[in-house]
Amino acid sequence: MSIKVNRVNKTFGEFVALDDVTVDIPAGSLTALLGPSGGGKSTLLRVIAGLEKPDSGLVEIEGREANHLPVQERGVGFVFQHYAAFKHLTVARNVAFGLEIRKRPKAEIKKRVAELLELVHLENFAHRYPSQLSGGQRQRMALARALAVEPAVLLLDEPFGALDAQVRKELRIWLRKLHEEVHVTTVFVTHDQEEAMEVADSIVVMANGKVEQIGSPDDLYDKPANDFVMSFLGPVTKLGGQLVRPHDLELFTVPEQDTVAATVERVTRLGFEVRVDLNVNGRAGPEGGPDEVWAQVTRGTAEQFALEPGKTVHIRRAPDRLVQPARSA
């Protein structure tokens, strides 16, 4: 079920949350809304759900104009960052809520709830209360509750934001798998670029209420539209005033074409990767101090060059990996 957002604006007093936002989300996709906090991504999600009214612009769900549909009739499943669990109801009753509102027969509700609890691996927790579950379990319950009403689209607002790192990683992979099983058009909000890259098949990068770029994770990483997208997705460093991916810096022991000389400041081993902090000789950086660059190399390279503080190397951007923004931000 596709979602179309056309030229939507939304302000809260003086604050512009959405500034002429246009996004097409194809049916069956798993899309991430990615950006720094305050960038408008949660507002966009809430506008799609009908929890906020846009000041202007159009929202379409399944090709149907949805602006005037109340939240109850939009057919969206919504998952909140802090779970929004119904604390006075058991896990099973939480999941059954939407079906009970729709007055489905008792037997059907029971069967469907059992299926969903199995899907989210909570079949043994049906009679517990939300307060007796861990954060990850609560969020899985919230997902089952949202899926129970067979929504046209599933919207998740920072679904893993309140969970600790380990559980977050597990749930990411699990959400990816769940999407492969259920195939409902899914949009999730995150400020974690790694999460967006790992889970989504399409990413909408937002900042200051505007869409910066829309594309696949590979597109955004390899062909960022501007400096903002490039620095938000993946590591960057600056060489000669231009953004470079640190793993796209080539090191030489002798000068080559286009290389500059640099002194090794520090070598940090991070497992397989080695971070090399460099100081480009004789060049002032943006704040007037030395021009500092860092390169990401493999352990083998570091050993081959015998990198250590004080050593001089020659660096350049790898010519075959010209990752640079299409336009400057």
Binding site: Q72, F80, H82, A84, K87, V149
Partner: peptide
């Protein structure tokens, strides 16, 4: 009001 919003998305008036 998150619980109330959740109920609304699930169809409750």
């Amino acid at each position: 009001d998150e619980q109330e919003q959740a109920a609304a998305t699930l169809g409750a008036g």
